[in-house]
């Protein structure tokens, strides 16, 4: 993948236009992280950067995104705008919330759209979350599988309840920021109060449950027991 030499010469002008101007950006580190960027033509790069600005990522945020997730600049404008439109129209996020998601959870643009939609619906209906909470808790940084797994684990342990129509629950749900986008240890020790072995088995069972929901013909045997 690392075809540095020739391309580097051709495009170095484009890079210096913008990247070198950003005195705070560790350019070499970024290129090392995402060598595909060498392949992006100067004009295209400019277009993509401009587009991100249009989506509300002004200088500080823009630099932050490029530093943490340079892959964003390898994607066509169409894709990025598609995801941003999806977040606004299907998930009813405000323009500011979309900007926040792009800044803090830029990988969202690579996610499968069907999964993204499912994740939103899961968070909205099953977990009872509002858009502001979704954005703040880092929901868009966590994979659908992980969200279902952690939430399902808490729910079955009796530690999380879907709020009713009035937004009420019989127990106090744990704060999302404490269990979604945190390391597994923290999740287990601070919130779930469970061991790693339990969670490991649960994850396997959950994977199988989901797989069988999707292809119901493959499922367990009928057992005569009681």
């Amino acid at each position: 993948m690392q075809k540095v030499g020739a391309n580097m010469d051709i495009q170095s002008s484009a890079w210096s236009c913008w990247l070198w101007a950003q005195s705070s950006l560790p350019v070499l580190k970024i290129l090392g992280k995402c060598p595909e960027l060498y392949q992006v033509k100067g004009a295209l790069l400019q277009q993509r950067v401009d587009n991100l600005r249009k989506l509300g990522l002004v200088e500080g945020s823009l630099q932050r995104v490029v530093r943490h997730y340079p892959q964003l600049l390898t994607l066509p404008v169409k894709r990025v705008n598609g995801v941003s439109r999806f977040l606004r129209e299907k998930c009813h996020l405000t323009a500011q919330q979309v900007t926040d998601v792009l800044r803090d959870s830029a990988a969202v643009v690579l996610e499968d759209m069907d999964k993204l939609e499912y994740k939103f619906q899961y968070a909205y209906f099953r977990m009872g979350l509002g858009q502001a909470e979704m954005v703040k808790s880092g929901l868009f940084r966590v994979s659908l599988e992980e969200v279902r797994c952690r939430h399902g684990f808490l729910e079955r342990r009796g530690l999380y309840q879907t709020p009713d129509k009035k937004g009420q629950t019989r127990i106090v749900n744990p704060k999302l920021k404490d269990f979604l986008a945190v390391p597994e240890d923290t999740f287990l020790n601070k919130v779930a109060m469970a061991t790693g072995e339990e969670f490991e088995v649960f994850r396997k069972l959950m994977d199988r449950e989901i797989q069988e929901e999707e292809e119901p013909e493959f499922s367990g045997s009928d057992i005569d027991d009681e």
Partner: peptide
């Protein structure tokens, strides 16, 4: 304290 682990 054992109940959550039994419940799940």
């Amino acid at each position: 304290d054992l109940w959550p682990s039994v419940r799940v």
